[in-house]
Nucleic acid binder design. Structure first.
Lengths: 218, 218
DNA sequence: CGATCAATTGACTTAGCTCAAAGCATGTGG
DNA sequence: CCACATGCTTTGAGCTAAGTCAATTGATCG
């Protein structure tokens, strides 16, 4: 990225569990320099403690990701740190104004957002039509790829998010998440170590389950 | 949009049910000049007739929308006409190359895609955590807004898509869609006329149902 | 006017949620 | 360094919303 742009950015550091201070004034683009975070949508701030603490998880983001944190009438999106994070915050408008002078940057951002859209749509497909087993398998495969750069065979890594976060992002309860993990463990596809450690013994098999376990519903 | 860009576009017309010829060569941006269409994701072309004819519906699009039709390894996205359509097709790469000269256009496209991402995320939230009733209500409210420009009070319009399409886009079966409509009809919130006609007697009430019927699950 | 296919309705099954009770990590204080 | 406390995670039992299977009704179109 051009240096000129960086002048617009404000840097910040978050500790585990901390939340990016909301800015009701403008949409923002946030560059995640290091760490892991979740993007949550907080409901209309109506009921005080009814929904799960934190609301619905829309996406997980890791070092290198560019996240767009929109503000909307009905309670906005919030970025919450899963681990200690370093980030650079750009006001969306100003960033785009500046980028207007540098089409290459603009294009890069566009490409990224089209990718994000694609991921979001793919995810939508999962949520709409997949069984719990398929969602969990897909989640694991996706994390293996993003956290360990592993796309096949065997791999191990640490999940930075809790079971609750996983459930919230997949539209499942923590109990269901746990039960599905147990089932995968019994099937010999997954091993767990403490709360966050997982090792996948056959990413390919998981991908297959993610693809069509419940077999074509609907 | 700048005229220069239009030179890149290829125009096409589709009749009801027709599908935009897939182009395995490149991603495309499609401008929907008139008509209505659905964006479907076809599964990996594995099983020949197992999934519902047409696959999962990712989104509906109407006159004026700019749709990005990505190609992906595992079976691509396809645009299928719900009514007769006129459209302009741009190869994604060429379009962006050309637009590089005109930051304003690039920015407009970026803004659109960020909006699409936002819609997709909002939708994801629906799919993940809402009851069938909430999904149907949300669908109706959303269609009222997009098809009839109506955001409150009473309004009537014709749905260009079948119950199956609705179900596929909401992650529900056609039976459930039908049952939910019946329930709304009995509640006096919706009236139906033939296969496609609907009239909403209280958009606000539907929006409320869409917001939190099942009450905070998970 | 009849054929065909979409939509509705009904009976039954089941995946996943809810409520409830242990089991273990992780981290804190002695 | 170990014991304890907290709260995440796992497991169990039962319930409910939505899916499946199947039959009927109704709309559209040739």
């Amino acid at each position: 990225m051009a240096d000129g742009l960086c002048a617009l950015g404000r840097t910040a550091a978050l500790v585990r569990g901390e939340e990016l201070a909301p800015d009701p004034g403008s949409d923002r683009l946030v560059w995640l320099a290091s760490g892991a975070a979740k993007l949550v949508a907080r409901p209309p701030a109506s009921n005080l403690a009814a929904p799960p603490p934190g609301g619905q998880v829309l996406a997980f983001h890791f070092a290198g990701d560019l996240v767009s944190v929109l503000r909307q009438k009905d309670g906005d999106f919030r970025l919450v740190a899963l681990t200690a994070c370093d980030l650079v915050i750009f006001p969306s408008d100003a960033f785009l104004d500046a980028a207007q002078g540098d089409p290459a940057v603009l294009r890069s951002v566009l490409t990224r957002s089209l990718q994000a859209l694609h991921r979001s749509r793919t995810r939508m497909m999962q949520l709409g039509h997949k069984s719990a087993a398929a969602r969990i398998a897909d989640f694991l495969v996706s994390m293996a790829e993003r956290l360990a750069g592993c796309t096949t065979g065997t791999c191990a890594f640490a999940l930075p998010m809790s079971r609750r976060d996983i459930g919230d992002s997949l539209g499942l309860t923590i109990e269901t998440v746990s039960r599905q993990l147990t089932e995968l463990r019994e099937a010999g596809l997954v091993e767990t170590e403490g709360r966050s450690g997982v090792s996948l013994t056959d990413v390919g098999a998981l991908a297959r389950i993610a693809g069509r376990t419940g077999e074509p519903k609907n």
